[in-house]
């Protein structure tokens, strides 16, 4: 009954989440408007473009009822530029897409997968949160809608490797308190890195906790015995730095 999984989304769950992203489709058949649980879907009228959630777009695509228009950042030109940026800047990931203006305080702020960052109008120069999953899924189900699918596939693979290397290198800056900034990280990367990064931060915290506890005990002991701290205490201080 209860979920036997550790905390954190599994890769299939991240893919499920990614299927809520909006993509632009060009319908090939008419379809009436639908009242779905997640909001109404406008009627499909070929050849007018519409934005649909990815899961529906993939369903229509598999039945050859629509073509999917890949987002502009998923073109060889944009990916090459982003890949160059990733390889040149060793610090951090390439910046995420610009956020829409801040909503007023009483509305629910929108975040991925509900930001329109993968429609045909999306920014061409930045990787959105679900870049890897979305790219893989579109290449798998709709490779004939790409101009140069093999090249896109190759560039995605390149990007993934550069970014995974950064994620692994980032371990150097991890410490017990956490507080590590990771702007621009992708959903699948979070899912893959969580066990390792979380494990390191938690492990360091536990090591530091026992040392903190030890120090506190020693201080209390010294107070009770009535003589001041010895050299050991200073050694501890040195270690901490």
């Amino acid at each position: 009954m209860a979920l036997p999984l550790p905390p954190g989304l599994t890769p299939p769950e991240v893919a499920f989440l990614c299927e809520m992203e909006l993509v632009t489709v060009i319908p090939r058949q008419r379809l009436e408007g639908l009242a779905l649980l997640g909001g109404p879907i406008a009627a499909l009228n070929p050849p007018h473009r519409t934005s649909l959630p990815l899961w529906l777009a993939l369903l229509l695509k598999r039945q050859r009822r629509a073509n999917i228009l890949p987002p502009p950042w998923l073109s060889p030109h944009s990916l090459t530029a982003i890949l160059d940026h990733e390889t040149e800047n060793e610090e951090g990931f390439s910046p995420p897409p610009r956020l829409p203006p801040q909503p007023s305080n009483n509305t629910l702020p929108i975040s991925p997968p509900f930001l329109p960052s993968s429609t045909a109008e999306a920014a061409p120069d930045a990787l959105p949160y679900h870049w890897l999953e979305l790219g893989e899924m579109l290449l798998g189900a709709a490779s004939d809608d790409f101009e140069d699918p093999d090249n896109v596939r190759k560039l995605l693979r390149g990007l993934r490797e550069v970014r995974m290397a950064k994620l692994r290198k980032g371990v150097d800056v991890l410490d017990a308190g956490g507080g590590v900034q990771m702007n621009g990280v992708g959903g699948m990367e979070v899912s893959e890195g969580r066990a390792f990064i979380g494990g390191v931060v938690d492990g360091l915290r536990k090591i530091a906790a026992s040392r903190e506890q030890q120090r506190r005990d020693k201080e209390r002991e010294e107070r009770e015995n009535g003589y001041p701290g010895t050299g050991d205490y200073e050694d501890d201080e040195m270690d901490m730095q």
Partner: peptide, 20 residues
């Protein structure tokens, strides 16, 4: 701020952090 340590950092909209 992270309790028990001296870490403090500024968080702006859209930032992603690994934290307790």
């Amino acid at each position: 701020g992270v309790e028990g340590t001296e870490r403090r950092f500024e968080v702006r909209r859209g930032d992603v952090w690994v934290v307790r």
